[in-house]
Design a protein around this nucleic acid. Sequence first.
DNA 1: TTAATTTAGTTCGATATCGTACTATTAGAG
DNA 2: CTCTAATAGTACGATATCGAACTAAATTAA
Lengths: 149, 149
Amino acid sequence: MKPEDETNEVYRFFTEVGIINQLISTKLEAFLPGRMTATQFGILGHLVRRPDGETPLQLSNAFQVPKTSMTHMLASLENHALITLETNPNDKRSKIARSTPQGAEFLKACMERMSEALAPVLSELGPEPFHRSLPNLTLIRETLDNERD
Amino acid sequence: MKPEDETNEVYRFFTEVGIINQLISTKLEAFLPGRMTATQFGILGHLVRRPDGETPLQLSNAFQVPKTSMTHMLASLENHALITLETNPNDKRSKIARSTPQGAEFLKACMERMSEALAPVLSELGPEPFHRSLPNLTLIRETLDNERD
DNA sequence: TTAATTTAGTTCGATATCGTACTATTAGAG
DNA sequence: CTCTAATAGTACGATATCGAACTAAATTAA
């Protein structure tokens, strides 16, 4: 394949990623209360799977958003009582965000509704397109992430 | 594979898509002037490849953003003289957005800088991860898109 | 130990996003 | 032809995003 076709493919890759992200965020946000964002929901899921919690900085690295955005998102999640924020005993500059039982409950309910909404798509596509692309996506994400310094 | 592993994989797929989108948008936006957004840049590229132009509604469908957001983005691109907006002669409710020569120029310059910035990543990964995942992404995007009504 | 540097998080301000409600125009029904 | 419904785009307002500058705590250097 010619090099220009390769760059073209890379460009289309990122375009498709952008559109899929847009589609799935919109679909998810339709289920979320108020102005809650797909990223905020992702953070909640991340925390539910990590009972020891994480610091805001770890979360902004994981989701690749600026820490100033993270401050805002965590404050919003805390207002909804879906997470708690306490100062880190090991480092008083820092904080620990943890999910609450209500947070886990809320996540579960939303995930179920989302699964229902996605069911037609999944039964049409089957698991293969996801299964086949996931390792490549992970590889690309890791490389982009490592190169960022 | 168990069904729950499949849904888990779908969930991770969308998470990776979100993070890659975040990484690449941030990287691109570092090259863009002022507050110009990765999506706005994508719109410009779309228009440069379509000399007859498109209506705002076509663009909001292509990029899956609300038309009210499109109004804002197009106004911004027009302010920078990267596109023109004229009323559609066939339908006076509607408009046609077209790229200007400056827009094409600007796109080219930014793409070149972006290619340079991505060169280390591409030489590390090679074209295969993009090439292999692109058809799956397109399929998923199309299915999500069709199912949306 | 003290001073300088680095780091975690926040405040503030500018701008982007997008839902609701609106206007103008077109299409369709009778 | 006229009236109603649908459609393209916009104004407005609420909220999200995020860069720059800041504060406080921890680390390193001297």
